[in-house]
Write a protein that binds this DNA or RNA. Structure first.
Length: 737
DNA sequence: AGTTCCCGCCACGAA
DNA sequence: TTCGTGGCGGGAACT
């Protein structure tokens, strides 16, 4: 992998629209105008081997960054190591034994008011850091703290030092108020940090003013997804062009419609600095200087983990600062908004969702529609969070190649998946017979890999007639379980929920499985990509519809998925392994099917598995947000054009077959032998709406884009339309456009 | 002189 | 109206 050195100005547009200048009115842009001058940095390609040598297999931690670089001979020594004293040796041992202890050590140093920063200089840790905490000239608290001491990068280091890199659970709550108080800074500054961290899935937002600490567990997969998404957006081309632009001053990566007037880089570059500071604190980039014809120019070099993309089959180097190409401003705000829409943006922007979740009582995020390249760059793309905010969850469980299909979990060990805290999507391998290969469930085949349920709180799978395994899937039981689920979900709103709790539920209820990934698909472009790929699979007929030989999977279970589990109206989970008249739903190892609700709308409520007694009544039995799908009889949707949008989870034979972002062709099994009836419970309000959205009527429609509208999914989301243009950082158009 | 980025105003949306 | 959030630019520290 090659590492690009990026000058921040290479990432932003040198142009500013006239409209923008007018918008701000009396602002004095003379200063900004000097930024019209474009400075291109000659990309500095380096082998990341050095990075790997520096950091080893573990991503650099804040400890790496704390102070001056160490001599090469000292590399490899744990942070704080001072080999010359017994105390230091002890510290070294302790640090090696327990990262948490090491973290606490760091806290002692970092976790202090800025004004008392002096002692920080005692810390000597490995790694690059531009935030040299040391300020030798600092006088005994008399002087005003220097600018360095108040830098966002240092603040970020302090913030990071508060929490372990690899927490064992997602139970570490972060109160912005407390943090800001503890660190002695305004909350505004904390926002700057957490926005970036959230984008990297280092923290997750659970409610307003409340975040949960994930640590670096997801960082690798997050970066991998970022890279993949960046590639989708063809930012790597931008990088290449930026490289060329280093030699050709006039070269730009801007699209014609970006206009040629004005300059917005100066305004925006401040944001980039903010982001860069955080990323530097995270040890993902570091500031370097590249030589240019006109002299030295500062740039940033990727020093983060270089192997996160090793899971990619396509591992072309892309700088981690996958900024949305160039920031260019179209002629006017309307244009800009239109351009936002042209990003193939998920209608439900993160920001919109945040608004929905702004209340503490609604911390959960919903799954959004499925859109190709569903990345919401619309709102904060160049804001602190937006650069990295590509909205994804854990990808350890696998993602899809843009042109591929569902990727299997990165690990085939279901146990490890389940036991790995912080894995967002429920990832329970199911072998070709539908049997869960993990040790947790005595009822093997009722588990599935549900990548889209990245925010799912509860997923219940009920055994069907063929494999009831003694499960009682009666209506009453389902209801009861639903109640349980809702209870679980309510509990889940508390960040105290732990994996052990999940596992206990799994073990305690053989026909129920719960999961509580905390990341929504909304913020999970990987999931969206997966889903989109699934859609494409079916739409393009990639699925082998004639696989009568494979009858391994029996459509024998129900999937009961509360809407609040992360599925909104976009998705229905049907019992997989079913063959419709003309539509064979391949199950393979993943007995589930994603069906956009829109495709089901034409169908009336059907009898469930021929059981007349099982007469679900939406209004009384279930909240509109829930549905139950049966699987004991034939149903026919053949010829229904609406089903063109049916998403089919392709079979996965081996997790290794589908490495992250792999492009392996989707196995096309259709091991379906029976056509059990399905119960379609058509919900009227499948999409949770805020009161305002509900009142808006059609607004929610756009808000939650359904997969069925994928083909034309360029509607500007309502939330975005009503968003503040003033609050939106404008980004450039990806080269794709 | 140019770069960096702290600081805080203020707009927006939700409650 | 209040509060959470964060876009944004002035202007000063820094190089």
């Amino acid at each position: 992998m090659e590492v690009e050195c990026l000058a921040l100005r290479d990432l932003i547009s040198p142009k500013k629209s006239k409209a923008d200048m007018e918008e701000v009115g009396g602002r004095n842009y003379q200063k900004e105008n000097r930024c019209v001058e474009r400075r291109r940095t000659t990309p500095h390609k380096m082998d990341t081997t050095a990075t790997m040598l520096l950091y080893g297999s573990k991503p650099p931690t804040p400890e790496h960054l704390q102070s001056t670089p160490v001599k090469p001979s000292e590399r490899g020594a744990p942070p704080h190591a001072d080999p010359w004293t017994p105390t230091a040796n002890l510290r070294m041992l302790i640090s090696a034994a327990s990262p948490d202890i090491r973290d606490r050590e760091m806290k002692k140093v970092l976790f202090r008011p800025i004004e008392n920063e002096r002692a920080v200089e005692d810390v000597e840790v490995d790694g690059p850091c531009q935030f040299d905490v040391v300020d030798e000239e600092e006088e005994e608290g008399e002087r005003k703290p220097s600018r360095k001491q108040k830098s966002l990068g240092l603040l970020c280091q302090k913030f990071l030092a508060l929490y372990p890199d690899y927490p064992t659970s997602d139970t570490i709550n972060i109160s912005l108020d407390e943090v800001s108080t503890s660190l002695g800074v305004e909350r505004r500054r904390i926002y700057d940090i957490v926005n970036v961290l959230e984008s990297l899935m280092i923290v997750g937002r659970v409610a307003k003013n409340q975040y949960v600490w994930y640590g670096r567990r997801r960082l690798g997969s997050t970066l991998a997804e970022l890279q993949g998404i960046g590639r989708q957006q063809r930012y790597h081309l931008h990088m290449e062009q930026a490289a060329e632009g280093g030699h050709r001053e006039g070269a730009t990566t801007h699209t014609p419609e970006e206009g040629g007037e004005g300059d917005s880089s100066c305004a925006k570059v401040r944001r980039l600095y903010d982001i860069a500071n955080v990323l530097t604190s995270l040890g993902l980039i570091k500031k370097v200087h590249v030589r240019e014809e006109r002299g030295r120019k500062p740039a940033f070099k990727w020093i983060g983990p270089a192997d996160f993309h090793s899971r990619h089959e396509d591992s072309e180097a892309v700088a981690a600062i996958a900024l949305p190409e160039a920031i260019a401003l179209p002629g006017d705000r309307k244009q800009k908004l239109a351009r936002h829409a042209s990003f193939n943006v998920v209608p439900t922007s993160v920001a919109s969702q945040r608004r929905v979740n702004s209340a503490p009582s609604s911390p959960r995020r919903e799954v959004t529609g499925l859109l190709p390249q569903s990345v919401d760059y619309s709102r904060r793309c160049v804001s602190n969070s937006a650069v990295c905010r590509l909205q994804f969850g854990t990808t350890v469980t696998g993602v899809s190649h843009p042109s591929g299909g569902l990727q299997s979990p990165a690990h085939s060990d279901g146990n490890s998946l389940l036991c790995s805290p912080g894995l967002a999507p429920l990832a329970v391998p199911v072998h070709p017979e539908g049997s869960y290969v993990g040790p947790l469930s005595p009822h093997p085949h009722h588990m599935a890999y549900l990548p889209s349920l990245s925010q799912a709180s509860v997923v219940m799978l009920y055994g069907g007639p063929e494999a009831q395994d003694g499960l009682d899937c009666s209506r009453e039981n389902i209801l009861e379980k639903r109640k349980k689920d809702e209870g679980v979900e309510e509990k889940r709103e508390s960040p105290e929920t732990e994996l052990s709790e999940k596992r206990r539920r799994v073990e305690g209820n053989s026909c129920q499985m719960t999961t509580s990934p905390r990341t929504s698909s909304l913020e999970h472009p990987g999931g969206l990509v997966r889903e989109e790929a699934l859609l494409r699979v079916l739409r393009d007929g990639e699925v082998d519809r004639q696989s009568p030989h494979n009858n391994l999977v029996r459509p024998s279970h129900y999937l009961y998925v509360p809407n609040s589990a992360g599925l909104n109206s976009l998705n229905f989970l049907l019992s997989a392994g079913q063959t419709t008249g003309g539509l064979t739903l391949p199950a393979g190892t993943l007995p589930y099917v994603l069906v956009p609700s829109s495709t089901l709308s034409p169908y009336p409520l059907m009898a469930n598995r021929g059981d007349a007694n099982l007469n679900f009544n939406m209004s009384t039995m279930m909240s509109p947000a829930c549905f139950v799908v049966g699987s004991a009889g034939p149903y026919t949707v053949a010829g229904a054009p609406e089903f063109n949008g049916v998403a089919v989870a392709p079979a996965l034979s081996s997790p290794e077959q589908h490495p992250l972002f792999g492009s392996a062709p989707i196995p096309s099994h259709s091991p379906l032998e029976t056509r059990p009836p399905l119960t379609f419970i058509q919900t009227e309000t499948q999409t949770p709406q805020t009161p305002k959205e509900a009142a808006a009527g059609g607004g929610s429609k756009a808000f939650f884009q359904t997969p069925g509208t994928l083909g034309t999914a360029t509607t500007t989301p309502v939330a975005r339309r009503r968003g503040s243009a003033q609050r939106r950082l404008d980004i450039g158009q990806p080269l794709t456009n």
